[in-house]
Structures are given as structure tokens and as C-alpha cells.
Nucleic acid binder design. Structure first.
Length: 790
DNA sequence: CCCGTCGTTATTTTT
DNA sequence: TAACGACGGG
């Protein structure tokens, strides 16, 4: 294969030396994908097949060798992390790639909307509401709704936007035919426009609507981007598909195809077997039907896996091949053979944690395997608890990925609310959050009064506006919660007035700082002196923390709860260092924060050697040398209530988990599990049966459904040669002659002799599969030994 | 406004 | 089980 790559490259005479060098490291399919042009392209990239390398090389190649202007390239991903990595790797191959738009879908949407806000009927200074904020807003917009109803409707609204259904769309009934839904959706939209905010769904839906309906904008965009690439395409939702369709001009024949090879080139990369976000709106049909929606599509499969051993890929395939709706792919392990995966059946979750702890700790102590090599995967966050307490107790260092989120922390949300209110003084949710924090005596009643008055002012402005008024939805400047508060001071109660005066003072001081970056002192020169170091946005955050009382407030919380709130505030300030101290800098920063919830692991101990505890969903895109997939039980993974379609998604999730492992894979399954206060007997996960017992080393006692599934079941439940049921010592009973066992250091063996040591301790001799006979005192080896039959 | 108690309810979650 | 939200008393 590699010869043919060389031959292809030799045939490409005008290649630059750089290109020749970055192309020569590709395999033939990767190369084909990189140099392909002239029609839409779907790259089906299996796990670990080097897809990021292909995309980034393709960007470099298009710029360096095909004369594409980097400004004309748009590459979108789903996570900021992926976007950053793509950007970085593309630039390292081709510096001009820095001028390309390499962004997340949502940040592209934000970029677009800031340019064309007027066409979308929104304020160009909009800030983005996260899910919590939208719930707060709807609660205020429709106070009659119970909290539960509010959550429910917010979910449905977000779902509707995933399909680009507006509150007046006919198809809205598909989401919820209750007529109240439409009314609530409408009220929510109205309020959202009044506050000058957008939600995540808007960042996709509004650009789509503008492109669809505004000819001028569509022409501009069609002329702007000539190459569009989408990564992780299997995770795209309908709205993102519609947006891509608009950008590609496929309906009007601007897309590259055999009839028009110079059209807009669309290249999507993904893996239908790794589509695991249906519950969040991802539409696997997007990738399954891509070739129908983009006529003339070329499909290239990347099936060479450079990550995992053949054994690991083999069982991954055993699982995923049970799915029906697939484009089909068979991964080949370039790494060759490795260790056989281990499947351990354990009595309960405590022993499961012990098993994992033993495995990790012993391999660390005896073989120097770093803790960082290990990842423990589970289906639900709640499962992490047992591992945490176990590891804490045994001093095994670990990190939990994705549970406590930086941006969801109280102190961070407080600070962001303050910043949002400065950026957008109509932001009602932000106003409510910080106007009385720390407590200033501005209670709910006062807040209500001020917001009602502001909205009245807005409505009055709207009704008096003539035809020349700003585009519909863009509210006039008089809607300003802080200004309204100031104007209403003497209508407030004494306590509220004092508190509000203090709050306004703080706010004014901050505004001044923003207007005159030289310093915060009123009346000083606003000009920047030559040679003066321009201040950073971080200075603003530090000032707010100080003056607003938030720092003091959270410091006292830290003392009580031993938390890190003040440190987190500082961390947030640090992350603002790259931004200018200006309104524009502030908007950029808020976009960055709001659209990138994966804040760089702020612990600072990130480099230290630790086991990773992580949900299966969170592992996508990651890899670990040694992986333990835990809780492989029916009812937990997969959950019991799955229909066939959902079952396929669970199966893909299992596939994702397995293919994270590079060298070693362990699966654990418990006979009993405590869940929701009850202890249930668990059956083995059907995925374990699909894997096949002949493909793994089985330890422990499999549940009946697993035993029944195997052809070779004589070994399980077989009794040892001598079995003193009369033996009263549990240790002696457990480690009796003839028992098979597994020792973490020595592997598999059978107890050939039992005896007593000099000081009268029970002692066993074990014949190991590959090695001699060892003598143990089982009492002291409980952690390393596991009986594999009974 | 803070604290305790009772009742409810339990997936997965980029942006 | 345990964690979180709602509610009521001080």
C-alpha cells in the first residue's frame, strides 16, 4: 500500500516539497481523501483511523497546492477543543491556514449573526443564554407554569430549534401538538428578543433562516466560502444540515459535482458507528443519507486503525455489527495482536471498585504502569461515587472528567452575569442574578418592579416607532435595566434604595473603567499615553470581583465550605488576559466563554499522573492505553427500557467505549447492584454476549444469561476436586484445592495443594498457567487473588 | 434571610 | 441511597 502512495506522489509532479513530505506519511485511502476534488465527499472515518490528520492535511493541501484562498475555507466541528486542535494542526502544516474559518458550528453561527444581526431581527450586541438562563427567562415570561412545565417546554423549544421550527411553523405539532406549546414558544421568543439574547438553538436556526430568506446575504456567503468541511458529521442535527445545505448552495447547483466541478466543495467526515447523541437532537440520518442529499457524493472509507490491538477491534466489531442502520466498515488493526481482553464478573459494585483498584495499584507498584494509562468508563455519573471513595481510601490518584463543570459553578455564573449585564443592559436573567448578590436588600418585589417598568418603556417605544425604526426585534436603547433602576430610585423602599444606590455606583465605576482603560478614576484622561501597556480584560474582572462584593461574598463561602470559589474567580480573570479591555473585547470574551464550556482543565495538576474516571459519552475522541468498562449489566448499560432504535445507539456507545482502548481492555459486570436505594440482581449486558466469551478471558461467576449464551459452559460452576462444604473457615472454603484463580501478577492458575505455614496460617500452592508453582497466604492476598470458578 | 426538614426523583449532554 | 428542591419557622 505504501508503495502505491509513493507512486501516486511521484505522478504528481508540481508538488511542493512540503506537500510531498506531509502527503507521504498518509496511507492510500487518506491520500485519496486529501487530494479528492470535484464532487461532494463523505469520509467515513473509523475510530482511530487518523481523520483529524486527513482534514488538516486537506486544508493545507488546498491552500498550498490547489491555490485556494484560505479565507474561502470554512471548517466546522462540534467542540471548541476539536476546533482548536484542528486549527493548530492545520497551521503547523500550512501557516496560511490561520486565515481560514475553523470554528465550532455555534461559534460560526455567532460570527454570522454579529455580521447580519439586522436581518435576523436581533441586537448585534446579543449575548448567549445557556440552558439554565433560558429556563429562568421562561419562568419569568410565563410565571403560571410550574417548574416542571417550564423545563419541559424549554426542552421542546430547544428541540424545535434543532429542526428550525419557529413558533409559527406548521410542523411545530410534530414536537408537541398541545396548542399551549406554540403560545409558550412565542412568549419565550418575544421575551428573548426583548432582553437582547439568543439561545444555542438560535445560533444555528437564525443563520439558516437568514440565508434561506435574504437573497443578498445568501449571495454574499455563497461567494465567501468555496470549501466547507464538517467534522463529526454523525453528530449534526437537522438544523445544522439545513445550514450546511444553504452554505453549500446545493439546491441551486453551486455545489461541486460532475456538472460543476468548480462549485462549492463540501467534505464531511464522520463515523455512523459513533453517533451517540440522538437524545440531544443529533440525526444519524444526516450521515446515512448524505449521498442522496448531495448528489454525486464520493465515499471514502478510512478503515486502518492505528490505535487498538486486533483483539480489541475484534470485539468492538462483534458488538457494532449487530446494528442494522449502518453504512458498514471493518476496521483493520495496523498494530497487530496484543493481550486478550478480560471480562470479570463480580459480586457487587464495591468489589468492582476493589477489582479496578487492585488492577491499577498492583500494576503500578509491580510493573510501574502509570496511573495516567488507565481510564474507568461508566454509563452514568452516579457510578463514579463508588470508585471515588474506594480510590480516595486507597490513595489512588484520580481525576473525574466532566462532572463538575467550571462554567456551571455559582461564582463563575455570578461573574459572567455581571459581565453580561455590562455588555447587554437588557439582560434580565443576568440582572436578577447579581443585583442582590451579595444581599443588598433588593428583593424579588423590587426586581419585578424594575423589570416591569423597563418592559413598559420598551413597549411604549415600539408602538410610537415609525417605519424608519430599527429592524423589528431590535429594541431601542431606552430599555436599560440599570438606567431604569436609577430613574426609579425614589420609588423604592428605603432599604432597597440604599442597596440599589450601592449597586449602581459599582456598575458605573465598572463602566467607566471600560470606557477609559487608562485607569478607573473618574475624570482622568481617557487617552492612552504612548508606550503605555494597554490593559487587559482580566483587570475588569478583578475590579468587579473586588467592588461588587462578590469576592468577599465567595471568600466567606470558601471559609465555610472549604471551596475554591475565589480561586475560580481568579482563574476566570486569568482566562480573560488575551482580551482587550473594551466593549468589543468583552463581547469576544463572552462569546468565547459561552461557546466553549470545556475551559482548559484549570486544576494546574493536569499533568500529574492520575486515573481518569469518565462517562462513556465523554470519552469520544479520547484514547487510553488501558480501559476498564464497568457496569456491563442489563438494565444499566443498556438501560432496560430501550426500544430497538435506542438499543442501536447504546450499542454504538459500547463500540465507542471499546475503541478507546489502545493496549488493554477490561470489562466488569456485577451480580448485584445498589440502585435507587434498592439492591437488584443484575443480568449480564447483552453486549457481553455479543462480544462472545471465546474472545475474552472470563473471571468470576457469570450470571445465568451469560452462561446460557455460551456453547462451552462446562467450566462454569464446576466443582473442585475436594470441596469441604463442612469447612467453617471462609478463607479455607474459598481457597480450597482444585479451585481455579487469577492472580494479578502471575495470571491464571489452579490450587494444587493447601497447607499451613510455620505460624499456623492457611497456605495454598498454586500452579500457574505460564510459570511455576507459587505459595501464598490467601489471607494477605485477598486483593490480588480472584477465584474464577467455584 | 438563613436554616432545617420533608418529599421527590432519579441516563447520557458539544454548544 | 443520596441529592436536590420546595417550604416553613425562627
Amino acid at each position: 500500500m505504501e508503495e502505491s502512495v509513493g507512486a501516486v506522489l511521484d505522478g504528481m509532479e508540481q508538488l511542493s516539497d512540503e506537500a510531498r513530505s506531509y502527503l507521504s506519511v498518509l496511507n492510500s485511502e487518506q491520500l485519496e481523501a486529501v487530494v479528492h476534488e470535484g464532487s461532494p465527499l463523505l469520509i467515513l472515518a473509523g475510530a482511530g483511523s487518523g481523520k483529524t490528520r486527513v482534514i488538516t492535511t486537506k486544508i493545507a493541501y488546498l491552500i498550498g497546492e490547489r491555490g485556494i484562498d484560505p479565507h474561502q475555507i470554512l471548517a466546522v466541528t462540534f467542540t471548541k477543543k476539536a476546533a482548536n486542535e484542528m486549527q493548530q494542526r492545520a497551521v503547523s502544516l500550512e501557516p496560511r491556514a490561520q486565515y481560514s474559518q475553523i470554528r465550532t458550528f455555534h461559534s460560526f453561527g455567532a460570527w454570522f449573526l454579529r455580521l447580519y444581526a439586522e436581518y435576523a431581527g436581533i441586537d448585534p450586541n446579543f449575548t448567549v443564554y445557556d440552558d439554565d438562563d433560558t429556563v429562568s427567562l421562561l419562568q419569568k415570561a410565563c410565571p403560571k407554569l410550574t417548574k416542571q412545565q417550564t423545563n419541559h417546554f424549554i426542552h421542546e423549544i430547544s428541540l424545535a430549534k434543532d429542526y428550525c421550527y419557529t413558533s409559527s411553523s406548521q410542523e411545530l405539532d410534530e414536537i408537541d401538538s398541545d396548542p399551549e406549546f406554540r403560545i409558550v414558544y412565542e412568549a419565550y421568543e418575544k421575551r428573548l428578543r426583548q432582553t437582547g439574547n439568543v439561545d444555542f438553538g438560535d445560533l444555528i436556526m437564525l443563520p439558516y433562516l437568514v440565508l434561506r430568506d435574504v437573497e443578498y446575504v445568501r449571495q454574499k456567503l455563497l461567494a465567501r466560502f468555496k470549501v466547507i468541511m464538517v467534522d463529526e458529521y454523525q453528530d449534526s442535527n437537522v438544523a445544522q444540515f439545513l445550514l450546511l445545505q444553504q452554505l453549500s448552495g446545493v439546491q441551486e447547483g453551486f455545489a461541486a459535482c460532475s456538472a460543476n466541478p468548480d462549485g462549492i466543495y463540501v467534505c464531511v467526515v464522520g463515523d455512523d458507528d459513533q453517533s451517540i447523541y440522538k437524545f440531544r437532537g443529533a440525526e444519524i440520518k444526516n450521515i446515512l443519507n448524505f449521498k442522496d442529499r448531495f448528489p454525486g457524493t464520493k465515499i471514502i472509507r478510512l478503515e486502518k486503525n492505528y490505535r487498538s490491538t486486533a483483539e480489541i477491534l475484534g470485539i468492538a466489531d462483534n458488538v457494532v455489527r449487530h446494528n442494522h442502520g449502518r453504512l458498514g466498515k471493518t476496521l483493520h488493526a495496523e498494530k497487530g495482536n496484543g493481550k486478550q481482553p478480560v471480562l470479570a464478573f463480580l459480586p457487587n459494585q464495591d468489589e468492582e471498585a476493589d477489582f479496578c483498584g487492585d488492577l491499577i495499584k498492583l500494576s503500578h507498584e509491580k510493573m510501574g504502569i502509570p496511573y495516567g494509562d488507565w481510564a474507568i468508563l461508566y454509563r452514568t455519573n452516579a457510578q463514579s461515587l463508588t470508585f471515588e471513595s474506594n480510590f480516595l481510601h486507597r490513595k489512588i490518584p484520580y481525576q473525574i472528567v466532566g462532572s463538575l463543570k467550571f462554567y456551571e459553578r455559582e461564582e463563575i455564573k455570578d461573574m459572567l452575569a455581571f459581565l453580561s449585564l455590562i455588555a447587554n443592559p437588557r439582560d434580565e436573567v443576568a440582572f436578577r442574578r447579581i443585583v442582590n448578590k451579595p444581599a443588598r436588600g433588593i428583593g424579588a418585589t423590587t426586581q419585578e418592579k424594575i423589570i416591569d417598568r423597563s418592559r413598559l418603556a420598551l413597549l411604549a417605544d415600539e408602538s410610537s416607532a415609525d417605519g424608519a425604526a430599527p429592524a423589528e426585534g431590535a429594541a431601542p436603547a431606552s430599555f436599560n435595566l440599570v438606567q431604569t433602576s436609577r430613574a426609579m430610585l425614589n420609588e423604592l423602599s428605603k432599604k432597597a434604595r440604599e442597596g440599589m444606590t450601592a449597586f449602581i455606583e459599582v456598575f458605573d465605576e465598572i463602566e467607566k473603567k471600560l470606557a477609559a482603560p487608562g485607569d478607573g478614576i473618574p475624570g482622568s484622561s481617557p487617552e492612552n499615553l504612548p508606550g503605555e501597556v494597554p490593559e487587559k480584560l482580566s483587570a475588569l474582572i478583578e475590579l468587579i470581583a473586588e467592588k461588587s462584593g462578590l469576592k468577599e461574598y465567595h471568600a466567606s463561602q470558601d471559609e465555610i465550605a472549604g471551596s475554591q470559589k475565589v480561586a475560580n474567580l481568579q482563574e476566570l480573570a486569568n482566562s480573560a488576559v488575551p482580551y482587550d479591555l473594551s466593549r468589543n473585547g468583552l463581547l469576544e470574551f463572552l462569546d468565547h466563554i459561552e461557546l466553549d464550556r470545556t475551559i482548559e482543565t484549570e486544576d494546574g495538576e493536569e499533568d500529574s499522573d492520575r486515573v481518569t474516571l469518565i462517562t462513556l459519552h465523554n470519552t469520544k475522541g479520547l484514547e487510553f492505553s488501558r480501559v476498564i468498562m464497568t457496569g456491563m449489566e442489563l438494565g444499566l448499560f443498556p438501560r432496560a427500557d430501550k426500544n430497538e432504535e435506542e438499543m442501536e445507539e447504546e450499542r454504538r456507545l459500547c463500540y465507542v467505549g471499546i475503541t478507546r482502548a489502545k493496549d488493554e481492555l477490561y470489562l466488569t459486570s456485577c451480580a448485584m447492584r445498589r440502585m435507587y436505594g434498592r439492591t437488584d440482581y443484575m443480568a449480564a449486558s447483552p453486549f457481553l454476549i455479543e462480544i462472545g466469551k471465546e474472545n475474552v478471558k472470563v473471571l468470576g461467576h457469570p450470571p445465568a444469561n451469560f452462561r446460557a449464551s455460551t456453547s462451552r459452559n462446562g467450566d462454569y460452576g464446576a466443582r473442585g476436586l475436594s470441596h469441604p462444604d463442612t469447612e467453617s473457615d471462609p478463607i479455607k472454603r474459598k481457597y480450597s484445592r482444585g479451585k481455579r484463580l487469577y492472580h494479578d501478577d502471575w495470571g491464571y492458575g489452579v490450587i494444587v495443594k493447601t497447607s499451613e505455614s510455620d505460624d499456623g496460617e492457611y497456605c495454598i500452592s498454586v500452579q500457574f498457567e505460564n510459570g511455576g508453582v507459587k505459595r501464598f497466604l490467601p489471607k494477605y492476598q485477598e486483593k490480588s487473588l480472584m477465584i474464577t470458578d467455584d
